[in-house]
Design a protein around this nucleic acid. Structure first.
Lengths: 164, 164
DNA sequence: GTTAGTGCAAACCTTTTGCAGCTCT
DNA sequence: AGAGCTGCAAAAGGTTTGCACTAAC
């Protein structure tokens, strides 16, 4: 379990593992979802009603700095907040549907290749990488086509501007 | 020049090309830099002191929606604002040094391959893709090593905690 | 017993919105 | 003329900070 690895890492840095942090750690890791600070706060509050939103932000900052969680933007679908996931899996891209918001994870060798090329091309030392791809999932492509057809129908029925 | 293509695209959408928008368009395209809304606002103000910050945001939104500019996060180095660039070049990744903030652009086939794989793997229709890589540039790697050495020296000279 | 961490309130920064007046076409 | 656009002020959303109190080691 990744939580254990994270605990060890924190202990090594002399960071205290408080009750609040344990709760947040659990939530981030086990959900497997991509939660933002606010969602995390609400979930954490169910386990400790006193836990403050500020503590969530401070904990996330800590974990981020320690390279224990990755911060995502998910193409700013749904706002400008950030999303978090534990950094246990292999490097992957996030593929997000701009219509329904569904997030898929893509693992594949182009990502590793890209990293290696950037390292050798610029003599760059890669610390973190983030690839986000926005578009339409198979399901929403169909729905969008349908919507476009309906819109065209409406336009043909009702006159372009002022419906007399 | 890309500005012309953008003008045509806007005209087609029935969007007016006002004096303010021309100024902003010029700035975004010709600088070749990755400017954020505030920088853009300040530069635009030099050409038209009346131009409002809100107009900058509205124009950016318009260009973004039209797929004419891309919005970047640059790994949130320097804050939570967004950066903009015209969408004329080939797809590329942004490589940003977490120490000095320098941004490099990387073009390479892994990016195209990634896109194609995501499309075929999920039946996904890709609209926009963003890859950002954070780490240390060759120059800063040297400086960081130096800094680490100096810190070690300091620690060895002065006792760990309370300097008696 | 120290030092780090928490909660609370308030500030901060970036971005958006409502509305009256202005301006392109 | 008329829709679109701008400026201003104010609000909204997300995140950070200062400080006194509390808890982990």
């Amino acid at each position: 379990m990744a939580v254990q690895a994270i605990r060890d890492s924190l202990k090594q840095r002399g960071v205290r593992l408080t009750r609040q942090r344990q709760i947040l750690l659990e939530l981030i890791d086990k959900s497997g979802l991509h939660l933002d600070a606010e969602q995390l706060y609400k979930l954490a509050k169910e386990k400790d009603s006193k836990l403050n939103r500020v503590t969530v932000y401070r904990t996330l900052k800590l974990l981020k700095e320690g390279g224990l969680v990755d911060e995502l933007d998910l193409m700013h679908w749904g706002g400008d907040q950030h999303y978090y996931e534990t950094r246990t899996k292999q490097e992957h891209a996030h593929v997000i549907c701009l219509r329904c918001g569904k997030v898929e994870e893509f693992f594949g060798e182009p990502l590793q290749k890209l990293r290696r090329q950037v390292e050798s091309h610029f003599g760059f030392q890669v610390v973190l990488a983030r690839t986000e791809i926005g578009g339409y999932c198979a399901h929403c492509q169909v729905l969008r086509a349908q919507e476009a057809r309906e819109a065209a129908d409406r336009a043909a029925t009702a006159p372009p501007r002022k419906p007399a």
